[in-house]
Structure formats: structure tokens, C-alpha cells
Write a protein that binds this DNA or RNA. Sequence first.
RNA 1: GCCGGAGUGGCGGAAUCGGCAGACGCGACGGACUCAAAAUCCGUUGAGGUUCACCCCUCGUGUGGGUUCAAGUCCCACCUCCGGCACCA
Length: 823
Amino acid sequence: MTERHQTLQSIEEHWQAVWEEQKLYKASEEPDAQEYYCLEMLPYPSGRLHMGHVRNYSIGDVVARFKRMKGFNVLHPMGWDAFGLPAENAAIQNKIPPEEWTQRNIAEMRAQLKRLGFSYDWDREIDTSQPEYYRFTQWLFLKFFERGLAYRKRATVNWCPSCQTVLANEQVVAGECERCGTSVTSKELEQWFFRITDYAERLLANLDKLEGWPERVKTMQRNWIGRSEGVEIRFPLAGRDGDLTVFTTRPDTLYGATYMVVAPEHPLVPELIEGQPHADEVRAFVERVKQQDEIVRAAEDRDKEGIDTGAKCINPATGEEIPIYVGDYVLMGYGTGAIMAVPAHDTRDFAFAKKYGLPIRRVIAPAGGVEGELTEAYVDEGIMVNSGEYDGLPSTEAWERIADWLEAQGLGRRKVQYRLRDWLISRQRFWGAPIPIVYCADCGIVPVPEDQLPVLLPKSAHFEPSGRSPLVDAPEFVHAECPRCGGPARRETDTMDTFVDSSWYFLRYCDPRNDKQPFAREKADYWMGVDQYIGGVEHAILHLMYARFFQMVLYDMGLVGVEEPFVNLLTQGMVLKDGAKMSKSKGNVVDPNHIIEKYGADTTRLFVLFAAPPERDLEWSDTGVEGCYRFLNRVWRLAEEWIPKVADVSPTGPGTEVEGPHHEIRGLLHRTLAKVTSDIERFHLNTAISAIMELVNGVYAYKERPDADPRVIREILEHLALMLAPFAPHLAEEVWHRMGMRESVHRNPWPEVDAKVARVDEVTMVIQVNGKVRSRITVPRDLDEESVRERALSDPKVVEQLNGKSVKRVIVVPGRLVNIVVG
RNA sequence: GCCGGAGUGGCGGAAUCGGCAGACGCGACGGACUCAAAAUCCGUUGAGGUUCACCCCUCGUGUGGGUUCAAGUCCCACCUCCGGCACCA
């Protein structure tokens, strides 16, 4: 093993050097060529690549190399999502500046990517933490600000006590910090937001147009956006002015609203309890609920709690006075923070009404009629009852009629409600793009003028976590001059969420060295949208929705010509070991470096492509890697043995006729080529590889024939190099050159299938009797149905099976099977 | 609870349209080469049955029904696992 291993190693490093020197993968805008933008999600420079990266980038590299050979002008870039917390944590722990730590990691990981031989255009490499990049992140912030899409407000926000910063809703997963897993608490703070909710409808509607996206991801985004149609209804307060507005998706149940519930944080609460006998108790309850953790309050099977405010309002449909409760199951963050409670037809209201002895009135009867007392809420559609003039109507119709009536009375209006919240983008951290804003005592919030960008991060800062940005303690950063009045001013010390950086990087790749603009429109027009985007499904909501939002805003600003950034999306599965995701805490991490060292880049890549289809999770297997290594060596030995013998031979090809076994092996070659081509196109990379393996197995048998035709073997070797090029680029290149080729195999066009050669002349057809396989016959491919039928019926095994029974029916599937139905 | 995806040999996985279930790889077993081993090459390998002299039979794709000449694939009901959302009114 060691000697051969040495050879493969030196092959890889040799070709990597050659490719780099020749800038083989450099992309430029060529108006006449068909462009293809192949993009993989850029990594965070955490230190070293993990197997998930290797898998992601191996898949992308197959696509890029294949499309290049197919004649496309391919853009295949790579860069670094280099801002982020780990760098700052490293600074705190090891006293290394974040910049230095980050650059060190980038250097390491870049070397790993190069060692794996991925076909990136390194001249387009970007680093989001460099001023050349983040000045335009800041520029885009200013544009958002100009358009009213970036704004500041005081709000209850998610706070991660460990990261010491606020988080966007999307970054809270099951009540925990997406990054570190710490339970998230809430804080009331003044923060910067992006008005993504303005785009909720478009973000949702456009999903239907994204035919190249997995249904799964689209569903996740739809759920996240959470559109629902309903009516906002004003309930007049009893015995005083004012009213309480609620949002409901069930106006048809209005007659069944027997009480109201408001969120503890609802602004009307103090007013409602003013002068009420139990005001102090209500106040105490509200305080207690507010203290509770978000997660505790949102916990699944938690008993709902509430208290009567003493205030009442009037149900506009029935004219009844109904009580107003404060309840912990109503959230201030959704709708109006108040609900009309219909216990008969809502499970939550039902539980609450039971607990506090509130009236339950059925207003919708199931189709089968009403029997007995309600034991649980009836939430389905039905026929209206106890609803005045609407009785007897189907509830769906009453929905519309009641909504009409409310609108006519000025008591309500139809409304579309979204679950999506605005994107909280400010972070109380150092290692991010500073928000380009200055606070002036006289002028207020003043944007930094474009010509003063970038707002640079100071060279040094104190990184002890304090719950506020380390920038606060960097006086040279904080002290500023007001751009408007020239007076003393204070610079914004929060930095931007790193998801802002990665929401437009794919545009920067189109024009990465532009120092005047984020990118030139014509370059973006040439390359965008991304023809194939590849990454982990964990970004289904976060990154993929933010990036879509950015693209839409930029589209509205006229900076780009397409509304959606990613035409086709492939979400790759995780890399598992022993059935679990690789993680340091489980101690099941396989370091790509070790595998590359032991087997080389080609083997490493081949294994992650072969062991599972890209979309599925991949179970790591050491012996599986061995198998791939064996296969590549098998190819290598075949080449070593035969290249000397075919050096001066011209290969068989279009127009050459060979017969018998020679024709057969050529047939296998061309059928393999057809399968590999279509398999790559539909991302069945594992079966593409297995097809090549089968071909190699076939050639191993063929080459042992005393009459093996060198011309045929030459044709096979050439095609083998071409087919392997996307999967094992180094070995393919070596074999290719050893056959005397001058140009790179990666510059060669993808070969064409010779359909005539690929076609099989004889096919084996299965003969079934009553659906059970009883025999097989070999027939000429195009034999007509009648003859097939005759041959099948006269087959000895079939005759034996028929044995006097009468043939009722014969089904012939051309080229496949015959089914004889007997009685 | 709602939404999405998946259940196939000892293991990873194949099977474009409803048409030979288990391609390819791993593992295992047997053989060749070798003084021996490694490497390599060649075979066998779903389970059970049968004089496996390679012929043949039965069963078999999570479970139970169904449609069909024919079902891993389509339909109905259910079970298990994974992912997302979850007091969203």
C-alpha cells in the first residue's frame, strides 16, 4: 500500500500546483457563453474543516466540473463568513485578537480546501470581516435605512445570557440559543431591526415559483412566515369609552365569545384594572408572569393561568357584557395581544374556561347534529347554531357574512396576520460590522455619510463579557463628530448580526474587487441567479430567508435584475458516525486531514459522494473509505498496465465497427456514460459512481481475453478519465496526461454517448405465469409482440406450468416481460 | 397537535413510467498467488426447503387491508424513527 499511496499523494499535489498556476478555474464574463453559477454555502472559519464541509464542497465540485465540461462558463467561488462570536470568545480565553484568530483559521482551512483540489476561482475569494467587504455591508444598511427598512425600536427581545447578546427570533431554537444552546431569556431593549415583515407576502408567494427548491425547505419557510387570514374586531368596553381590539381567524364563532383574554404585557391592562376591587391581585399576577422565562411560559403542556380584571366589554354580536381576563396563554407578540375566547370551539379557551368556570356556548354544530355536553372543543367546520340570523348556515359561509357585517358596522376589518417578526440585527458584540450610525444630541439618529465608510473596527478592545458591546469601552471609536451639525456625537456601538454579512455575499462574488460599489449591476446580471446552491438544511429558514429578503430589497432598489437569488437548491444531509451527528462532545469526530493523509483527496471525496445520495444523511464508515481507495487503485493499475500498450493506438469511436465481446464492452461503456451523465444531472452521484465501478469490473474481465482489442481499451481508458474527472479529478488528470493528452481533462468536453453502440441487440425477457417468474428468454431487441408471445408460450418451462390450464390473457411489455394469465 | 421526510439483506445503499427486489460498495465465507502474510485476482453470499450435480419450490421491501395480469412503487387505515413549527387566537 505504501508505495502506491506515495504515488497517489504526489499526483494530487502535482496537479493542484499545475491547476493553480494555470488558473484553470478562473471565471470571467464571456457574453457568448452560457453562464452557470455553482455556489456552496461559505464556511465560518472555525478552525478546521469538518466532514460536513468536505461533503458539501465535494458535491458542489462535481456540479461545477461537470457543467464546465458540458460547455458552461462556470462561476464557482469560495470565501469566509468571518465575523462571529467564536473569534471573540477565543479572544477572551486566549488573549488573541479576533482578527488574528480568524485569519489563522482561514489560512488553515484554505489550505485544506486546496489540498482537496476543489475547482474554485480563488481570485474571487472574499472575507466578510475585511473592511473591503464590510464597508458595503454598511452601505447596504444605509440604503435600508433610507428606505425605512432599518429602524430602531424598544422591544422585548431574546437575550442569550451566555453569548451576552440579543438574538433574532430565527436564532432561538426551542427556547435555546441557536449557537450555544443556552436557554434564552427576554430583555426590554432598544434595538435595530430590518423590516422583513414588509416582505412577508412576497417571501411567501414567491416560494411557489421556486420549482428548483426542495418541498421540505419551502414548507419550513411557509410555516415560519405563518400567514393566516382573519378579522380584527373591536369590542367596545362596557361602561366607559374605548375598546379592545382582537384578531381572530374564526369570526364565525363570534356569538360563542363568552369572555376576553389579554396578554399580561397588554398596554390596556393598567387602565382596565384602574379602580377595580382586585387590581392589586391582577398587578401581582402580571408581574409574576412577566418574570417567567420565555421557555417556561411557552412550555407545552403547561396549565394556563389567568385572572379576572374586573373590567368588561360588549360582544357586538350578542350585545352581552363579557368579562376581560389577563391570561398567560395570550402572547403580546402576535396579533393584537388580545383574543376573544370561544371555549366551545378552541381547545385552549376550552381548558381555560373549564378551569375558571366560564360559560361555554356552542355556536357550531357538527354535521351529524349535537349530542350532549361538550367534553372538548369542537374546532372543525359545521352548521351555525345559537348565532341569531346566521343559524342554519354552513360555518364557512357565516365566516364571510359575519366579517362583512363587522366591516359594514365599522367594528372590524379583514386582516392578514403573519407569524414572522421583524429581523433584529443589532448585536452587543465587537467582532461584526459596525452599524454606521451616529447619535447626536441635537440631530438625533444620523446615518454615517457614504463617503465616510467604512466605519472601521478599532484595532484593540477589551473583551470581557459585560452585556454590552466592547466597542462601548473604546473611546476613540465612540467619540464622533455629527455628520450633520459637526457637534460632538456618539457612535453606535452595536454591530450587525453576521447573517447580514452572508445575505449578499453571493452578489459580491460576481464582482469581488469592486471598490466603488458592492458589485456592478452588469456583472450581477451576467451571473445571477445562482443556478445551483448547495448547503445544509439547517439554514432552511435563517440564511435562506434573509438572503431572499435582501435580494428582493436590492431588486426593488434596482441594484439587481432578479428577485430570487437561488434558482435551484440542494440541501445535503448530515455526516453521521455511529448514528449520531459528529461532535466533539460525543467524541465521534473524523478529521478530514487524517483521511486525506492516509488515502488522499480523491478517495476522501469519492467516499462522501458514494456512501449516500446527497440529500440523505451519510453514515461514516472506515471500511467504506477503504473500498473507495481500492476502487481508485483498481483504476490506477488498469491504467498502468494498459497505457504503455495503447500509447500509439487510436481509439475506437464513431464509425469504428467491432464485433462480439469487443462490441459488448463498448456497449457497456456507452451505456455507463449515458447513466453517469443523467445521474449527475439529477444528483444521483452515488449511483453514477457505482456505474463506473461496474464498468471497471467489466473491463477487468475483458482485458484478460487473449484477443482484447487495444483500440477498445484505449477508448475505455479515455472515457474513464473523463467520467471520473468530476469525482476524482487528480487521478483522472494523471491518467489523461499519461495517455499523451496536452490539455487538462477538466477542459475537455464531456463525451457524447454513441447511441448505436450503447444499444443492446438482444434482451432477456422475463416470462411470468400468473405474475410469478417461471422462465427467461433471450430475444432480439425489436422482436414484434406477436413473435414474443409465441416464443413465450412455447417455452418448455412455461408449457410445463400451463399443463392443461387455459390461457386467459397474455400481457407483453416490450423488451421487459411477458405475463401469461391462466385460469 | 400540525406540516414535511423516511422505514428494503449482517451494514451503507440500488430499483426514472406499476414490470426480474437487493445494482454497487462494505462485511463474511471459499479458492488462486505466496515458504507465510499483506496486497492483489477469481468465485459465493436475503431467508427457508429440496440428492445446492448451479435444477426447482415457498416466503420476503415497517404492519393490516385494497386496486391491478403485475405493487418496494398506487389507494385506505395504522406503527416506528428523523426533521421543522408549536398556547400564533
